[in-house]
Simulated assay, not measured.
Amino acid sequence: MTEVIGVRFKNVGKIYYFDPADIDFAAGDHVIVETSRGVECGEVVMPPREVDDDCIVQPLKCVLRAATMEDLQRVQENMRKEKEAFRICLKKIAEHGLGMKLIDVEYTFDNNKVLFYFTADGRVDFRELVKDLASVFRTRIELRQIGVRDEAKMLGGLGVCGKPFCCSTFLGDFQPVSIKMAKEQGLSLNPTKISGTCGRLMCCLKFEEEAYEDLLRTTPRAGSPVYTPEGRGTVEDVHLLTGQLKIRLDKDPEAPAKSFHKSVVKPVKNGDARPDRPEKKRHNREKT
């Protein structure tokens, strides 16, 4: 076990572990740390705690110091400079006639690098653009192509549910999402109905999947034979969230299917062909 703190560099970004260096940081504090991109200022979102060594990416770097008022002022100044850099880069992209969409600009804390995030349909030759930007900003320039999900996370917006994007409010990392999840949750397989604003499958399919998997383990599937308080029948429709089942009874197959809750229904085991078998067993035990 190792003591760490969790630091985040963006509002809903990934949490990185650092050695607190025996300093008692609290959530909300700002710290100066060294990262692969250089010295950065981040916010403590997880106070000191013990975590398994397997959860740590070695080598674990120490916090350099707590952020001072001057450090926070520099962060604010960098944010102002990012807006100006965004405007300049847009102009340069138009001058070079490049088919790319600028999404965001980010200054590193020590101003040693400026990162430009963009999207494009394919590969873009931006070598001349980099030279042009380097001559303007006189620092290291990095252009990074991102996907549509990252674009949605950076820009934010409202999803089809009418609420802010999950990725821009609380999802730190993107998780793989598959069409199989939509099938298990009984959703329409129409791409326009299960896709987010970014055009990819909705992230909420993933973080609701565990609950649906648990419900599927405890709920009879459509087409399976079951015992009900009114006799044996076949499940025709399932509502996973409420646990209500529509069952057509064997004794009256022409009648409309009846609704039962899964708590009063028992599945038919293999080889259990007679609907009165459980009752007979219980009757025999009473006689003996």
Results as ranks from 00 to 15, higher is better:
257 A>I: 00
16 Y>T: 01
13 G>H: 05
116 F>G: 13
18 F>H: 00
93 I>S: 04
138 R>Q: 13
123 R>A: 09
210 E>M: 09
148 V>H: 07
242 T>A: 09
5 I>G: 04
285 R>W: 14
105 V>W: 09
6 G>V: 01
217 R>H: 10
29 D>T: 08
248 R>E: 00
101 K>I: 15
164 P>I: 10
250 D>V: 05
115 L>T: 15
255 A>R: 01
55 C>F: 15
203 C>E: 01
34 E>V: 08
13 G>A: 04
266 K>M: 08
231 G>I: 05
257 A>F: 00
173 D>A: 04
219 T>D: 11
125 D>R: 15
114 V>Q: 14
96 H>C: 10
236 E>H: 04
264 V>Q: 11
32 I>Y: 10
34 E>R: 07
209 E>M: 04
149 R>E: 02
29 D>R: 07
266 K>P: 07
130 V>A: 15
98 L>V: 09
131 K>H: 09
215 L>I: 11
268 V>F: 03
88 I>S: 12
142 E>D: 10
162 G>A: 15
64 L>G: 04
263 S>A: 13
60 L>N: 08
80 R>H: 15
178 S>M: 00
94 A>E: 12
104 D>Y: 11
133 L>K: 11
246 K>C: 02
233 G>W: 00
245 L>F: 03
150 D>R: 05
208 E>H: 03
219 T>S: 11
122 G>D: 14
145 Q>L: 11
262 K>Q: 08
243 G>M: 08
106 E>L: 10
214 D>E: 12
214 D>A: 15
139 T>Y: 11
232 R>K: 03
148 V>K: 06
151 E>R: 09
10 K>E: 12
247 I>S: 00
30 H>Q: 10
15 I>D: 00
148 V>I: 06
237 D>V: 05
92 K>I: 09
149 R>I: 03
263 S>R: 11
159 G>A: 06
281 K>P: 13
25 F>S: 06
46 M>G: 10
83 K>M: 14
229 P>C: 07
207 F>E: 07
43 E>F: 05
261 H>Q: 08
226 V>F: 02
274 R>D: 14
177 V>E: 01
278 P>T: 03
228 T>W: 02
81 K>M: 09
127 R>E: 12
100 M>L: 08
155 L>N: 13
79 M>V: 13
219 T>W: 14
192 T>F: 08
133 L>C: 13
54 D>I: 10
53 D>W: 14
204 C>S: 03
135 S>H: 11
236 E>D: 06
61 K>E: 06
